[in-house]
Amino acid sequence: MMDCKKATRLASESQERKLKTGEKLELKLHLAICSGCRNFAHQVGILRGLARDYARGEEKAPPQDQPQDAGKSSPEE
């Protein structure tokens, strides 16, 4: 069976790439029986959310506050 080292590696990589079917299956099987890795897999997603909130100035702007055209025009100029 897949060990925790491998399982956490895959859980992390799933944030960057689509796992192959075999990898996904093996990971799923491992997570079903391992609470530590299950928590880890959940936490990598939480980390992503936290990092993005943090990067946005530690405050979530309500969606209607988005500046018009901000996404389209280049902020470079």
Binding site: R56, E59, A61, Q66, P67, Q68, D69, A70
Partner: peptide
């Protein structure tokens, strides 16, 4: 073009990135 402080903040950070 910014109606609110929070929008300006978002914009400024996107430029900073």
């Amino acid at each position: 073009s910014f109606a609110r402080q929070s929008a300006l903040r978002t914009w400024v950070f996107s430029i900073l990135k």
